[in-house]
Design a protein around this nucleic acid. Structure first.
Length: 796
DNA sequence: GATTGTCTTTTTTTT
DNA sequence: AAAGACAATC
């Protein structure tokens, strides 16, 4: 068996066998370490301490927000290692984000006083990928399989849809992609097709989804690729079908720790169950049912509610003492979450002060909201508060823009956590496709992405020819191209372009050993003409894209080789550090000596696990928060999840919270009026102080925001806003257009009139609905409404 | 095959 | 408001 199991057992009576990086411990008898009263234990309260020391057997730690959950987890992990119960490589710790994983490694290292090397600590996906690389052949993959992201998946599915002549306007590949992901979240794979067919409600393309799914999986096989969900499901299948291998892993991982257990989905649950199914069941899950906010991704709160059943003899420890927030914040949050049913229930308490009440402010529109928050932040800064300790948490990412614009204007430095991720940008993905094709010529998706980027005259027609041969001979596009250039299939222009494309790659490949990988990347981007595209592009984003490419080249230096880099890229879908900004990208951190303090802007989802002194919660309006789609799609369950999201938001704050809602907001360039979120009313009024609007100079309509005795006067319907309707665009009624009688031809001289049946070369048969000179609007049987010039159709 | 211009759609949350 | 899709034109 491969080196994945090279770490051996650690037994308390033996010397610690360390594995790599354990040098300090190497010669120390474990018994000494075990007896020493570890100082880190003394800082814990009784429950926390129990949670750390109760190392054997299944344990569920129900940890409310701010009760020291991370602390318990890291201390427990260190404790297990420090007392020699297991070596670092014998502990499996699963987190939800790469960021959380990094933090945990840091904290464990600090507690241990040495680097925590060899730990199996990471996200479900990264650990699965690691296991899968060792055992790829068991699911018919090679160990260098590619990990596809959503973009790759969608493009692949789009091709499959096209091959079946399914209109991807009506049945978007994106939707199918989500469906397939949801199935995988349930732990379903191609072999469960019967069950999938049972779940499938035939809504997608007349029930073709399951069979496309099968086709998709076999395509992945051929491409030697796995998508994100496969990482888990493949692992599960490997475990299920190879009992020996499973028990090897079960033996290896003496202790399992799981963070954010409330957010695990069925696949992750099965994965854990398999690994923890030993006699000892040394699994410790930490979670908070009130913070379950990933139901839409298949997370099952049920997992946490069922824990005691799943693992016989499980102990449950509750952490209820909150060390983070003020009394007001805690009771506001408790009051809100009490509106949910089906909770495990716990009562957070604190010895701390009541603190200041929650501020709630209504504004006229989104811009005013941003203005007020901007000036609030300025005064916080004047009072000596640290910008790093301030966060704005929004429901949906489009909300960040108003703040960015405002902050640029008044010069508040900020960072947006999330936003467009570095590796998802077009230019970066293109560059990565070059790398992928370099190291894995058979990577068809990469091939397709860059074969004609930059443009070199290999258009659709030529690509079709390459495709056909590839499919016929069951070879990759790259191999197919190599054959095709030896024939006359292509136009000579395309042929020579393709030859030089292939030659380039052969040459670059021969340089792999002679150059550093970053030099080679630079070379590829220059010689392929890719950099040239953006240099001659005069759009305002072009310079930024070139910057990003430079950043990519320097980022890649951090990795040993292209392979390591690609692995990082596909797994760290984690939102990166965020895009730091002081307004303009051109301002860079010249004064490195004092790190620039920045306000944090992010979504509520990405705020989970973080804490700040001051938290601003804008956009508390019905329809936005709770989000309309959540309500429409999941009814009361959706509402409860939104409420938990609100709870997460409130409990991020240590000292102060300010909630905002706007009467009017621009969504898709349309003004939409809204009433305050029901969540506003659900916060107990004794913890709230409604804040009068600072008089704005302009003609804002603030009369609606009323203050009675310093309390928030709820259910004010100030959104009648006859004003706002004047902003409303006249969008007409799209449906009416279809219902009405065919419009009479208004112009003479049209070759066709409404009602004529015509044939179009591409669209087939249709009926003219409207004729206006030479312009026709035709409803085609196959493709629906199109606008066409008359000489492109013939009478039937 | 590439480029241009017009029309449509988009935004919930993410490993 | 901006990006993508697609028909028309070069």
């Amino acid at each position: 068996m491969s080196d994945q199991f090279k770490e051996t057992n650690v037994h308390p009576t033996k010397k610690v066998n360390t594995g790599l990086g354990d040098s300090q411990l190497k010669n120390t008898p474990v018994s000494i370490l075990a007896k020493r009263q570890e100082p880190y234990l003394q800082d814990l309260n009784e429950e926390q301490r129990n949670a750390v020391e109760e190392t054997d057997g299944p344990l569920l730690v129900l940890a409310g927000a701010g009760t020291g959950k991370t602390r318990v987890l890291t201390t427990r992990l260190s404790h297990i290692i420090q007392t020699g119960q297991a070596g670092p490589s014998q502990v499996l710790a699963v987190t939800f984000t790469n960021k959380a994983a990094r933090q945990m490694v840091d904290r464990v290292s600090r507690l241990l006083g040495r680097p925590a090397d060899g730990l199996w600590l990471g996200t479900f996906h990264s650990i699965s990928a690691r296991i899968l690389r060792y055992n790829a052949e068991l699911v018919n993959l090679k160990s260098d399989f590619t990990i596809l992201d959503t973009d790759d998946q969608t493009r692949l599915l789009k091709q499959l849809l096209q091959a079946r002549n399914i209109d991807d306007k009506r049945w978007p590949a994106r939707t199918l992609c989500t469906m397939i992901q949801r199935w995988k979240d349930q732990g379903l794979t191609a072999s469960d097709i019967k069950r999938i067919e049972a779940i499938d409600n035939n809504e997608f393309a007349n029930g073709e989804a399951p069979s496309i799914f099968l086709e998709y999986q076999s395509r992945l096989q051929i491409l030697n690729a796995a998508d994100f969900g496969d990482l888990l499901t493949h692992c599960i299948n490997i475990f299920k079908n190879n009992p020996d291998l499973l028990s090897a892993y079960q033996e290896k991982f003496k202790y399992i720790l799981v963070d954010e257990y409330q957010d695990t989905n069925v696949a992750q649950y099965l994965w854990l169950r398999l690994l923890a199914a030993t006699e000892k069941q040394n699994i410790c899950c930490v979670g908070d049912d009130d913070q379950s906010i990933y139901g839409w991704r298949g997370a099952e709160v049920g997992n946490i509610l069922r824990f005691e059943k799943d693992f016989s003899g499980a102990k449950v420890i509750r952490l209820e003492r909150n060390y983070r927030s003020t009394g007001n914040i805690l009771s506001a949050a408790s009051g809100l979450i009490a509106n949910n049913s089906g909770r495990l229930g716990k009562t957070l308490w604190t010895k701390g002060d009541l603190g200041s009440p929650i501020n709630i402010t209504g504004t006229w529109d989104g811009e005013e909201e941003a203005r007020i928050i901007g000036s609030e932040i300025e005064s916080l800064e004047r009072e000596g508060n640290n910008l790093d300790e301030i966060a704005i948490l929004v429901r949906a990412s489009f909300q960040t823009r108003a703040f960015e614009e405002r902050f640029i204007n008044i010069g508040i430095p900020y960072r947006v956590i999330g936003g467009p991720r570095f590796y998802e940008r077009q230019e970066i993905r293109d560059a990565i496709a070059y790398i992928r094709l370099l190291v894995q010529p058979d990577d068809d998706l990469a091939f397709e992405r860059i074969i004609n980027v930059p443009k070199k005259g290999i258009g659709d027609a030529s690509q079709q020819i390459i495709h056909q041969l590839a499919r016929a001979k069951n070879i990759s596009l790259y191999s197919s191209s190599q054959l095709i250039v030896q024939t006359d299939e292509l136009s000579s222009k395309a042929r020579y372009a393709l030859i030089s494309f292939l030659d380039n790659f052969t040459r670059w490949r021969s340089l792999l050993k002679l150059n550093t990988h970053w030099e080679l990347l630079e070379m590829m981007l220059d010689e392929s003409g890719y950099t040239g595209i953006w240099m001659s592009d005069k759009s305002p984003q072009a310079p930024g894209r070139l910057e990003n490419l430079k950043e990519l080249v320097s980022a890649i230096e951090e990795f040993d080789n292209f392979g390591a880099f690609l692995e990082h890229v596909s797994l760290v879908m984690d939102r990166e550090e965020g895009r730091p900004s002081t307004g303009s990208n051109l301002i860079n951190n010249n004064d490195i000596d004092k790190p620039l303090q920045m306000v944090n802007i992010m979504t509520l989802h990405s705020a989970k696990g973080l804490e700040f002194d001051d938290v601003f919660l804008p956009g508390w309006e019905e329809g936005l928060f709770p989000h309309q789609l959540a309500l429409d799609e999941n009814g009361s369950a959706g509402l409860e999840e939104e409420r938990r999201l609100a709870y997460v938001g409130l409990t991020r704050a240590r000292k102060r919270i300010q909630i905002f809602f706007a009467a009017n907001r621009r969504v898709y360039n349309q003004w939409v009026s809204a009433i305050p979120s029901r969540f506003v009313d659900e916060i107990p009024s004794e913890n709230v102080e409604a804040k009068p609007i600072e008089p704005q100079s302009s003609n804002n309509q603030n009369e609606g925001i009323l203050i009675a005795d310093g309390k928030w006067q709820s259910k004010i319907n100030y959104a009648k806003s006859s004003e706002s309707s004047t902003f409303r665009q006249n969008t007409g009624n799209i449906n009416a257009e279809w219902e009405e009688e065919p419009v009479k031809t208004r112009h003479t001289g049209s070759k066709y009139k409404s009602g004529d049946r015509v044939i179009h070369r591409k669209f087939g048969i249709g009926i003219v609905r409207q004729a206006n000179g030479e312009k026709l609007e035709i409803i085609f049987d196959r493709v629906g409404k199109k606008k066409v010039i008359d000489r492109f159709v013939e009478a039937e």
